[in-house]
C-alpha cells in the first residue's frame, strides 16, 4: 500500500525564533484523499500546512528540523527546487487573494510563468469549470477579479491553483471568510477535486472536517495529538483529549 502515500511528515519540528511551534510531528497524507487538520486556533495547523510547500521559507527566523517527503523525496533537501515544489503542491489561502487583474489573467498567470503560450483560452474554460465557476463568469472573463464576491474569488483562487496542475492542493481555512452557501459550494468542490488531486485542508470547523475529510489530525499546542481515519476520530477516538475537543467539552 506504499504507493498510496503522497506525502509523509517525519519527526518534524519547527521554531519561530525560540518559540517551538511544531513538536515531533509524524503523519501521512494519502493519495486522492482529503486530510483535515483540526484544533483550537494557534495550535500550529497553518504552520504545518505551510511546511508542506515550504511557504514558511518566506518568513525570516524560522528553523525547521525533520523531513517532509513528497513521493518519497524530502522537500527540505538542499537540491530541491522550491519553485518546482510549489508548482506540484498548490495552496489556497484563508482570505481569497485573487490578483488585481482580469479573471482570465488570474488563471493564466501560473501557466504563463511556466512557459505555456497556446491554448490558454481553453485552459481558462476548463479550469473555471473544474472550480464550478464557469457558468457565473463566462461572460465577464475580462473583468477585474476584485469585483467578484468573496465566494467567487475563492473559487477563482482554486481555479488559478488548478491551472498549474499540482498533485497536491493545500487549503488553509478556505471557507472562514465565506457565507454558508459559498462554503457549501467549496465543500462540494473539494469532494469533486479529490478524484484527481490529493487534498490537505485546515479547518477550525469540526463539522466541516467530518463532512469532507477521509483522515483527520487533531492538533493541540504544536503537537499532533491524534491522527486517524475521520470516521474513527469522530466516533471513537483513541485519545481522550481528542474526544473532549470533538464533543466540545474542551477547556
Amino acid at each position: 500500500m506504499k504507493q498510496m502515500v503522497k506525502m509523509e511528515v517525519h519527526d518534524l519540528n519547527l521554531w519561530y525564533g525560540s518559540f517551538h511551534a511544531l513538536k515531533d510531528i509524524n503523519m501521512k497524507v494519502y493519495k486522492h484523499k482529503v486530510t483535515a487538520f483540526i484544533g483550537p486556533s494557534g495550535c500550529g495547523k497553518s504552520t504545518l500546512i505551510r511546511c508542506l510547500n515550504r511557504m514558511n521559507d518566506l518568513i525570516g527566523n524560522v528553523h525547521v528540523e525533520g523531513r517532509v517527503l513528497l513521493d518519497d523525496k524530502n522537500i527540505y533537501d538542499k537540491d530541491v527546487d522550491v519553485v518546482n515544489l510549489r508548482k506540484r503542491v498548490g495552496m489556497v489561502f484563508q482570505k481569497p487573494n485573487p490578483f488585481p487583474m482580469s479573471i482570465h489573467d488570474n488563471i493564466t498567470y501560473g501557466p504563463k510563468l511556466h512557459g505555456k503560450k497556446r491554448g490558454l483560452d481553453e485552459l481558462v474554460e476548463e479550469k473555471l469549470k473544474d472550480a464550478a465557476l464557469w457558468s457565473e463568469v463566462k461572460d465577464i472573463l475580462g473583468q477585474n477579479a476584485m469585483d467578484l464576491s468573496g465566494g467567487q474569488q475563492q473559487r477563482l483562487c482554486i481555479a488559478r491553483c488548478l491551472a498549474v496542475e499540482p498533485d497536491v492542493i493545500l487549503f488553509d481555512e478556505p471557507c472562514s471568510a465565506l457565507d454558508p452557501i459559498s462554503t457549501g459550494k467549496i465543500e462540494d468542490l473539494i469532494n469533486e477535486l479529490k478524484r484527481h488531486y490529493t487534498i490537505v485542508i485546515v479547518t477550525h470547523n469540526m463539522q466541516q472536517a467530518a463532512r469532507i475529510s477521509d483522515y483527520t489530525g487533531y492538533f493541540y499546542l504544536g503537537e499532533l495529538k491524534e491522527f486517524n481515519k475521520t470516521k474513527k476520530i469522530f466516533t471513537n477516538p483513541d485519545n481522550p483529549e481528542t474526544e473532549r475537543y470533538i464533543t466540545g467539552k474542551f477547556g
Partner: peptide, 10 residues
C-alpha cells in the same frame, strides 16, 4: 498577492 504568486511557483 505575493504569497499567492509564490504559491503558484513564481
Amino acid at each position: 498577492y505575493k504569497e499567492g504568486s509564490l504559491a503558484l511557483g513564481a
